[in-house]
Simulated assay, not measured.
Amino acid sequence: MTKLNQIVAIEKGVKARAAREFADLQGSAQKDALLAGISRTYLPRDEEGDQLPPEGTKVQVRVEDVLTQLSGVLTRLFDVVATKDIANRAATADVTVDGVTLLRDVPVAYLLFLEKQLADLQAFLAKLPVLDPAEDWAWDPAAGVYRTPTTKTLRSRKVPKVLVKYEATEHHPAQTEVFTVDEPVGEWSTVKFSGALPADRRRQLVDRVVALAEAVKVAREAANQFEVTDQTVGRQVFDYLFAR
């Protein structure tokens, strides 16, 4: 019997072919010159008049024929899509990670949704900010964030000093030079805080989403082994739509 993954494999080609032939038929049905025909015969007024051959063009496209061809094109498409969608309602699989079944009897459509969401989630988690590895961090339960140990740094200010190069004498004044020195006036106590994650925590989150994504892919492949029942709804649809 046909399996679901086989129907999925041919669906894209069937859709493309149907779209192409649909466009061709639509174009043919809209060309007035192909739909129109004419027949002309000439009859002279007397027997000695010119004898001219008949003229005419045949109708090249009949709308009813176009509808018949369109029915054939779309019937195959309708049948393939119906076969896939109806099978998708019954095709399910369990999602199991490390021997633990997280989800049971998950339909294919939801497994496809999960794959897309998990791919987006992996990209999101991979870009989460992590703590600066140059610092020592510890969890502060009171603040709900990570913090570093307290570091102390001196605060200083510049104090002018006078350097006497030469003492004053009876004949010359003293020679001096003003300069500044940094004198401690206080002490800064600094603690850094961060709401980022430790690098190993981010790695743990990414590893989990990767493991789940792989499990979802395995489940989808298992569900796609479901044996389908070929549907023939297209003929019923077009027998109704195009009935005379």
Rank of each mutant, 00 (worst) to 15 (best):
K3C: 03
K3D: 11
L4A: 00
N5D: 10
Q6G: 14
K12L: 07
R17K: 15
A18F: 04
R20M: 09
D24S: 12
D24L: 03
S28W: 14
S28T: 05
A29D: 15
A29I: 08
A29R: 13
Q30W: 11
K31S: 11
A33W: 07
L34N: 11
I38C: 13
S39A: 12
S39P: 13
R40A: 02
P44N: 00
P44F: 00
E48Y: 08
Q51E: 11
Q51M: 10
P54T: 03
T57A: 12
T57C: 03
V59N: 05
V61I: 15
R62K: 05
R62F: 12
V63M: 09
V63A: 06
E64Y: 13
L70S: 09
L70H: 08
S71A: 14
G72P: 02
L74H: 05
D79V: 00
V80P: 02
T83P: 00
D85A: 13
I86D: 03
A87H: 00
A91Y: 01
V97D: 04
V97L: 14
V100G: 08
V100R: 07
V100Y: 08
T101W: 05
A109E: 12
E115V: 07
L118T: 04
A119K: 12
D120V: 14
K127F: 09
L128P: 03
P129S: 12
E135S: 07
W137P: 03
W137D: 14
A138M: 10
W139N: 09
W139D: 01
P141Q: 15
A142N: 15
Y146H: 01
V159C: 04
V162T: 13
H172I: 15
E177H: 07
V178E: 15
D182V: 05
T190L: 10
K192L: 02
K192E: 14
F193Y: 08
A199H: 13
D200E: 11
R202I: 14
R203S: 14
R203E: 13
Q204P: 14
L205E: 03
R208Y: 13
V210G: 10
A215T: 04
R220C: 10
R220V: 08
A223I: 07
A223M: 05
Q225M: 07
V228L: 00
Q231F: 06
T232H: 05
Q236C: 10
V237M: 10
D239A: 07
F242V: 09
